[in-house]
Each structure stands twice: as C-alpha cells, then as structure tokens.
Amino acid sequence: MKIAVVGLMRHPIAEPFAGGMESHTWWLAKKLIERGHDVNLFASGDSDRTLGLSACTESSLKTHPQAQTLAGEQACNMSAYASAIKQICHGQFDIVHNNALHPLLLLSAADLPVPMLMTLHAPVYPELAAAIQYAAARNASGNLAVAAVSGSLAAQWEPLIKAEIIYNGIDVDSWTFESEPMPNLAMWYGRFVPEKGPHLAIQAALKAGYSIQVAGPIGNKAYFEEKVLPLIDQKQVSYLGHLLHSEVKQALKRASVFVNAPMWEEPYGIVYAEALASGTPVATFNRGAAGEILDDRCGVVVKERTVEALARGVIQAAKLSRYDCRERAESFCHVDSMVDGYERLYRKLIARQRQNERLARQEAIAMNVALASMKSPLNEIEVAS
C-alpha cells in the first residue's frame, strides 16, 4: 500500500522524542516501511528523513521563527497542513493515516481522493470535536474511520463518533529485560508539565524511602523551576536530562519501580509499556488508560490521588514480579499488534472505497444506457417529415 502518514508539526518526528505522539508516529512509519509499504511521512523538515519524509514546514513549530506567537503558530500550522493536503491529492495514495490534531485534515476528509483513518490521541476539546462532527456528517461514503488509542479515550469520544480501539504499542523486543535492578531506585520520565505531575512522583518516591531519577524535556519552564527544581539535589533526586531512546532504556531497566502521577486523563501512557518491557513495575494514579494497560501482576493503580497513597503504591509495586511485567508488555503492548490493527483498518477502508467506485461506475453505465435508449422527440419529428 502507498500510505500517507501525517504527524504533528510542533515537534520533529525524530529522536529524542518530545512525547508519546511523536514516538507513536515514528514507530508507525518505521514498522509500515519494514512491512514493505510505500510510506510518506508528512511532518516538519527536521523530522527523520529515513521515514520517507515529505516536509510540510522547514522546521518544527517549536523552533520555527515565524511560529513564536499564537497567531504565527496557527498560520504556520494551517500552511503546513494545506501543503500536506495538496500533496496527498496529487500523490496517488491508497490511504491517509492522520495522527495530527489539527482540524483542517478532518474538515477536508470527504473531499480527498483517498480514504482517511484518523487516530484520536487526545481527550475531547472544542476545536477537534467540531471538526469530528463535521467530518462525520459528511461521511456518507464511509471513507473516514476513527480509531482511539484506549478504551477510556474511545468512551470520551463516543457521544460524537464511534472509534475502534487500537492500543498503542512499542518495539518490546528492543527493550532489554533486567531481573536485578538497583534496590530502592525509582524513575519518572516524560515532559515536565503540570498535568504530568512529576513533582508528585518525586515526593511519593521520597516518602516511600526511594531515591528517584527523572528525565525528559522541560515543556513548562516556570513549572519546572517552581515545583521540580527545588526537589533535585543530585543525590536522592537526580535529573538526567532529555534522553535518547537508548539512554531511556538503560535508565529504566536499572529502576526498581516506575512512578507516575498524571493529573489528567492520559489517553494511553507509552511510559507504562516501556517500563513493563524493561521488567519495571509501575505505581500510578488511576487516570486515563492506566487501568487498561496495568493489571495487578505488573502495577499498582492508586485510586486515591495523594502523595501518601502513591508512596504506598511504590512500596507495593516494587515487590511485583519483573517477569510478569515483561510478559504483560509482550502480550499487550507490542508494536506489531498495533500495526496489525491499523493494517486491518486500512484494508477495510480501501475495500469500501473500491466498492463505492464500482457502484458509481455501474450507475454511470446504467444511466448512459438509459439515455441512449431514449429517443428525442425532435428526432422523431425529423424522421416523420
């Protein structure tokens, strides 16, 4: 299949990943290429060029000189996705896989010459919800399908549109299992933003008697300096920086437990899958998809969202079998299962479009035959005279 994969423009689709969506899009494109598909990745120009990159903007909007204001970022985003749509219309693709959150692609879905699969990575918010409703209202042909990365996310969107559930996946085989971690060492990594609650994860680890290593990009500098930086002493609490994937793997497998403290309904949580692949059990608040990914053999999902409850969860989780954690990653979190699910939806959408095209051709033929069999009254008059 010739597949157009559309990503976010704010950050590059490249290592080190800014977040889970960038990682998801990178792995999706990589695995589709490995399976023999012809993939074009529509993303920023500083994304990974080994993934069939079709650059829609010179650089990611985070660093783009014309996108440093809200109005500038909106204009750059609009221009980038308009470029993607133009290229898709002339690219003879079989399918578009839309991983972006920008409304423009959805608003254009019914007008594209190819079917579109939209993956929902975010909770309901007004701009995307309006675009979903508009696209659904124009989807008489069935050329648009929607997938959600977890059951909890699909449930949030269900009043607006029905989404098939295809869980995110990671390349479990590339993660090294470690049966003997460093004792009393916890880890947290992700973007340092308030909604991910890293300061609470640090406090819970310390209260449980664990030292903790934290890593990731600083997404909100003011929050990091106010809430996180005062806790970092490079003894009990160490900041490792924004790590490459290979460095994350080394850090995760050393940890006795992964601590998470999401303050929002996280749609999936790729960090859970990566921790489990390393053999590292998880302690986390019960938010978003945590309860779908983790079971009682590999994690402790804390209902009470307090530092004290999470600290107790850290102690309990660290006692769980690391072999059970790895088994859960292999059976539930594998990228091959994710790509299998998307390929199934691609084939379904392509088959539906081809059926629609056959029906349209048959209707056109039938109409032409009907018109040809009809005699014009003027012709009859001429024959009679």
Rank of each mutant, 00 (worst) to 15 (best):
L117A: 12
A147C: 15
L70A: 13
L144F: 09
L41C: 04
A14W: 06
S179V: 00
S385C: 15
P181V: 08
C89D: 12
N260Q: 11
A370G: 11
A140E: 10
N77P: 02
L106A: 07
Y134S: 09
M187I: 11
A14M: 11
T176M: 01
A372E: 13
V39Y: 05
S321P: 01
S376Y: 08
R49C: 10
D171A: 05
T284G: 07
G20A: 15
M187Y: 00
N286G: 05
G142H: 01
A29P: 02
E127P: 08
G279Y: 00
A155T: 11
A208N: 03
R49N: 04
P159Q: 10
G269M: 02
V6A: 03
V248E: 03
V257Q: 11
G36H: 13
H245E: 12
R297F: 10
A251G: 00
E266S: 02
R191C: 10
Y189K: 05
A131H: 05
S108P: 06
A55P: 02
S238Q: 12
L229M: 14
A205V: 12
R352L: 15
V193D: 04
E343N: 07
L120F: 07
T284K: 00
H24R: 09
P230G: 09
G151R: 07
P194L: 04
P181A: 11
Q133R: 13
A364M: 11
Q355Y: 08
P103E: 10
E274W: 09
V193N: 05
E380Y: 11
H334K: 06
R358V: 08
S141C: 06
R361T: 13
L206G: 09
V335D: 03
F258T: 01
Y223E: 09
Y189H: 13
N40L: 07
I365H: 12
R361N: 11
A318T: 03
V149Y: 03
A329S: 00
S60A: 13
I13H: 10
T25Q: 07
